[in-house]
Design a protein around this nucleic acid. Structure first.
Lengths: 239, 239
DNA sequence: GGGAAATCGAACCAATCGGTTCGAAAAATT
DNA sequence: AATTTTTCGAACCGATTGGTTCGATTTCCC
């Protein structure tokens, strides 16, 4: 079965002749595809879409140009495949931090750390720069990235806040707004500093922890309920 | 005196011959310079640095290519001149909002509105996208933009918070961090939404006011002192 | 109005772009 | 080992790039 060997490739042009004989269709070797994507990713993220040439990618990937065009129809298609991959790498396994247990404060700190560490690390910042730069001429690209990445995460986190509200731990008039406030507090200033290349290197773990803790404090001081204070006081007393 | 006519032009090559006769040196007509900058600004901000060609700029500015190269040595130099101008247009006259009088809460709302309205409007977002996109290959550009723009503003605002602290209205352990928290709260979510082209049009005045008011509430609930509450209560009573 | 100077406009440069083509070489299936 | 298929590598396409050059034209100062 072909899909066993290359499950992630859409089966639009299966090259049925070869398929019937149990042979791989042209442009369907997952390893080669990976090789191309990895090389192209480095080039695109280093140079941006425009400045990256297909010859650069050829060189970086160690694959001939003709072969690239067997796997991807155009520069745009290759680019979009890479952005999609990057989005997945950034946002997958991020919201598991919401389900690790512990007190509300602990969970918020754990989530805030995971979020802001990932969003401000060098690789991710470079990827975001590339998407933002391309958003001017290809708005759909930036839009899709945002919808499937940050927006999706925002809804998951809003749901988490809702459930904390149902438990009587938080009291918010506008949970979606509160979710935005929280995520922005967790990266106070740092996100823009990184985007504009003001920081030579990403925030350290300690700095991040300091900012996140301050953000969580501020957030809970605004939205925490009496029940939350009682819980926290009780917990502090037992230690 | 030449510098009276073109004060902003560096006098490196004054074409002394012509200057002695009271004539303008080549490439020193402020009006032409403006014409070129205006055309180039539109093209660069619409297309980004790479995709903008000098022929596009020629067309948009209504100036021959040879003339452009009399005023600017290269595409990069022209681009940097425009970014510098844009930075000035964005951040100048922004921090006057801090000095308009009124209560602390009123001032914070006024400043927050001015800040976030300006930073998320279409023109400014496009300019920022261009700078961020170019920051990958020309980090100095993004760095200078950030230092002379957002960072400078951050220091001004931190000073404002300090003086409010001196008056006993606020109590903060870390004023610079608090300044970041405030500015980020004022654009909760909106800044990233705009950057990634998720929003077709910038936030409305009402939406902005709603977000800013919520941010100011949160900020004051965290950092406001008893003295501030008394002041606000007294003011509310007299109305 | 005469003469100096700046601008224009178009041609021109070498280099590079994304994308295609094709025969030779390499791999893999039978 | 024979044969099918993929990949390679280089040449090639037309278009466009940033940048230069240069005579014709316009503008401006005396």
């Amino acid at each position: 079965m072909i899909s066993d060997l290359s499950p992630e490739i859409p089966g639009d042009q299966q090259n049925t002749e070869a398929a019937r004989r149990g042979r791989r269709a042209a442009g369907c070797d997952p390893a080669k595809r990976r090789q191309i994507l990895d090389g192209a990713r480095r080039v695109f993220i280093d140079l941006g879409f425009d400045a990256a040439s297909m010859n650069d990618i050829t060189r970086e990937a160690g694959v001939s140009k003709g072969t690239i065009y067997v796997y991807f129809a155009s520069k745009e298609e290759l680019f979009e495949a890479i952005i999609e991959e990057e989005r997945g790498k950034i946002f997958n396994n991020l919201y598991g931090a919401l389900e690790g247990g512990g007190s509300l404060r602990e969970t918020l700190i754990r989530f805030g750390m995971a979020l802001s560490l990932k969003i401000t690390c060098d690789k991710v910042i470079r990827a975001q720069r590339t998407v933002i730069g391309a958003s001017e001429r290809v708005p759909d690209l930036g839009r899709r990235f945002y919808e499937r990445g940050p927006l999706h995460g925002h809804m998951l986190f809003t749901g988490f806040l809702q459930s904390a509200m149902d438990e009587g731990l938080l009291d918010m008039k506008d949970p979606p707004l509160a979710a935005y406030q929280f995520t922005d507090l967790c990266m106070a200033g740092l996100f823009r500093q990184c985007l504009f290349a003001y920081r030579t290197e990403p925030p350290s773990d300690e700095e991040m922890r300091y900012v996140v803790a301050a953000g969580v404090d501020m957030f809970l001081k605004s939205y925490g309920t009496v029940k939350l204070w009682e819980l926290e006081a009780r917990e502090a007393a037992t230690e």
